[in-house]
């Protein structure tokens, strides 16, 4: 991984350009869109790795993904070092932190499943909406239904979407919701701790840009919420989310599911 100097030099170059551009905010009238270095480098990387351009090969892209996994750990360590001095503050918000995790777990199902059925998805809907479908969730669904089942394909589809545009989407959503002034920055920060590394980083980054005075607290509470999602996520998924989603599907599908005329996918 280390040997691929081309990869690292591209990253260094992107980072320097991205940081030099800095934060930009666009006012849309109703709210603002926050743009910041994390998003620039993500987009630049996406362009360079675009298969048609042939600037990078499959092996390099896989390597980049491998480094992503390792380097995220540094981010985790940084956030951990912010948690230590702030434990009283975190315990003080303990009830909110516990309850928001319920929101993370239910949030995918409550609106995801009905909409999936309304637009004509069948059993794919279970896999697609029982969680945010990151790696641990994929493992859970393929263990229960098999990777090539409709449920497995639904989960994989959302996984791919998440990899391709999850971070950017959550950053824009978080920045925009933040700028509306409905929610407190700390509540939004907890919302940002969705349990996926790059999505959490991008969403909390967007919030930090939108609320510069609360940047430290935003990182702190996003980190705490993300840690809870990471620790409890798998258990909640196996024992709660998946069985509940499957049950809800059986109940809701005859009511609002569309008739299967074209092998809906």
């Amino acid at each position: 991984m280390l040997k691929d100097w081309k990869l690292h030099i591209i990253v260094l170059f992107f980072v320097l350009i991205g940081e030099a551009i800095g934060v930009k905010q666009f006012n849309l009238g109703v709210g603002t869109i926050a743009l910041f270095p994390m998003l620039y480098v993500l987009l630049m990387g996406g362009v360079v790795s675009f298969p048609k351009l042939k600037l990078m090969n499959e092996v390099q892209m896989k390597r980049a993904a491998g480094i992503l996994g390792i380097s995220f750990l540094l981010f985790v360590a940084k956030l951990g070092s912010m948690l230590g001095p702030s434990l009283p503050k975190i315990f003080d918000a303990g009830v909110s932190l516990a309850v928001q995790e319920v929101g993370h777990v239910l949030g995918t199902i409550i609106i995801g499943l009905p909409i999936a059925l309304l637009i004509g998805m069948k059993r794919e809907a279970i896999g697609a909406t029982f969680s945010i479908d990151r790696e641990p969730n994929l493992a859970i669904i393929s263990e229960k239904y098999g990777a090539d089942s409709p449920e497995g394909r639904g989960a994989l589809g959302v996984y791919i979407c998440g990899t391709v545009f999850g971070a950017i989407y959550l950053a824009i959503l978080a920045g925009f919701l933040g700028s509306l002034g409905i929610f407190h920055p700390i509540s939004l920060a907890m919302g940002a701790g969705v349990g996926s590394g790059s999505m959490m980083a991008a969403a909390s980054g967007a919030l930090a840009v939108t609320f510069p005075n609360d940047a430290e607290d935003i990182a702190l509470f996003a980190a705490a919420a993300n840690l809870i999602s990471t620790i409890l996520g798998t258990y909640l998924c196996v024992f709660f989310s998946l069985p509940v989603t499957a049950r809800l599907y059986e109940w809701l599908e005859p009511k609002i599911g569309r008739t299967r005329k074209e092998g809906a996918k």
Binding site: H104, G107, G112, I119, V158, G162, G166, F183
Partner: peptide, 28 residues
């Protein structure tokens, strides 16, 4: 991927973020 799965992935991410935020806000 079909368009449905793309739409649902957006709904899923919005749902998890929004509901966690909402629940935290309500408790506060």
């Amino acid at each position: 991927l079909g368009w449905r799965i793309v739409v649902i992935s957006l709904v899923v991410y919005t749902g998890t973020f929004l509901f966690a935020t909402l629940f935290a806000e309500i408790v506060f």
